[in-house]
C-alpha cells in the first residue's frame, strides 16, 4: 500500500508537466471506455430498505466493532427510543460526530420513518455470549436487575426495561441480545453524560453514577450471557413513578 501511495505522489507530480496530459487524454483505454452509448440510469427500488443504506453499512444484523466505534444492531428496538437517538445525534445532544454529519438536514418526519422501519425489522438475535462470572457477581447482578438497591435510590432494571428485559415501548430499549462490552460502554457514557447531553439529571445518569465499576461489569456480563426469549416483545406500560423520574427520556418526543 505504502508503495502505491508514494507512486501516486510521483504520478501526480509528473502530470504537472504541461503538455503530457493533453496528449495522453486521447489515448484513454479500457478504463475510461464509455463507447456503448449512454448507459441506462440505475434502477432504484422505492423502499425504506434502499433509503436506509447509509445506516446499514455499519448497523447490520449483529453488533459490530468498527475501527472507531461500536455499531450496535438497531433492528427491533423500540420506535420512540430509536427516534430519540436519531434526533439527539442530529442535534448534537448525543455525541458521535459521524452520526451528526450523516443526519444533518434530515427532517424529524423522515427520522421518525427510519425509526419505525428499524423498529419493525425482525432479525434473529445472536446467541448469548459465553461469559464466566463468579457466583458472587451473578448474585450481585441479579439483585440489582430484579430488585435494585433502595438504600442508594437505584431502581430495579426491570422496572423500566421490562420483566423480560426486552424494553418498554415506545422509549425504553431492551437489555438482552446486547454484547457485554456495549452495555459496559453505555454505563460509562451515562456516567460521563455522553449519551444524552443536557438531559435533566434524574434518570440513567444518576443511576449509573451510583453504581461501582464492579457492579456495572457484573450486570453487563450477566445480561450478555442471557438468551433472548422466543418472540420477545417490549413491555407496554411504564409505572407512573418511573415515567415521572425519567421524564427527560420518555416525554421528549412531544416537545417539538
Amino acid at each position: 500500500m505504502r508503495q502505491f501511495i508514494s507512486l501516486l505522489f510521483i504520478a501526480a507530480a509528473l502530470s504537472g508537466v504541461s503538455g503530457v496530459s493533453s496528449v495522453m487524454a486521447t489515448a484513454s483505454d479500457g478504463i475510461a471506455s464509455s463507447s456503448a452509448g449512454p448507459a441506462m440510469p440505475v434502477t432504484v427500488p422505492d423502499t425504506m430498505a434502499e433509503r436506509v443504506k447509509p445506516c446499514t453499512v455499519c448497523h447490520g444484523q449483529a453488533d459490530r466493532v468498527g475501527r472507531d466505534a461500536y455499531y450496535p444492531r438497531i433492528a427491533g428496538k423500540p420506535e420512540g427510543y430509536l427516534f430519540n437517538q436519531l434526533r439527539d445525534f442530529r442535534d448534537g445532544r448525543r455525541y458521535y460526530r459521524p452520526m451528526t454529519l450523516l443526519l444533518a438536514n434530515v427532517s424529524d418526519e423522515y427520522l421518525r420513518e427510519m425509526a419505525a422501519y428499524f423498529s419493525a425489522l425482525r432479525q434473529p438475535y445472536p446467541p448469548p455470549e459465553q461469559v464466566i462470572s463468579s457466583p458472587t457477581e451473578i448474585r450481585q447482578a441479579q439483585k440489582l436487575i430484579q430488585q435494585g438497591d433502595a438504600t442508594r435510590d437505584i431502581p430495579a432494571c426491570i422496572e423500566c426495561h421490562g420483566k423480560q428485559l426486552m424494553g418498554t415501548a415506545p422509549f425504553i430499549p431492551g437489555l438482552l441480545g446486547l454484547p457485554r462490552i456495549y452495555i459496559a460502554a453505555q454505563f460509562g457514557a451515562w456516567k460521563n453524560g455522553g449519551v444524552m447531553r443536557g438531559q435533566e439529571s434524574n434518570c440513567m445518569s444518576d443511576i449509573a453514577r451510583q453504581l461501582t465499576i464492579k457492579e456495572t461489569n457484573a450486570v453487563a456480563a450477566w445480561l450478555a450471557a442471557q438468551p433472548v426469549p422466543e418472540n420477545a416483545e417490549p413491555a407496554d406500560v411504564l409505572s407512573p413513578e418511573m415515567v415521572q423520574r425519567c421524564g427527560s427520556i420518555v416525554q421528549r418526543s412531544a416537545d417539538r
Binding site: P54, A104, N105, Y110
Partner: peptide, 26 residues
C-alpha cells in the same frame, strides 16, 4: 468519508443517501 443525506425538503422529503465510508475504507 462522511456520506450524508441531501436535505429533506418539501420537494424531496425522503431523500436517498450516501453511506459514510470513513469506517469502511482506508
Amino acid at each position: 468519508l462522511n456520506g450524508g443525506y441531501p436535505p429533506s425538503t418539501s420537494g424531496n422529503p425522503r431523500p436517498y443517501g450516501m453511506p459514510p465510508f470513513a469506517q469502511v475504507l482506508r
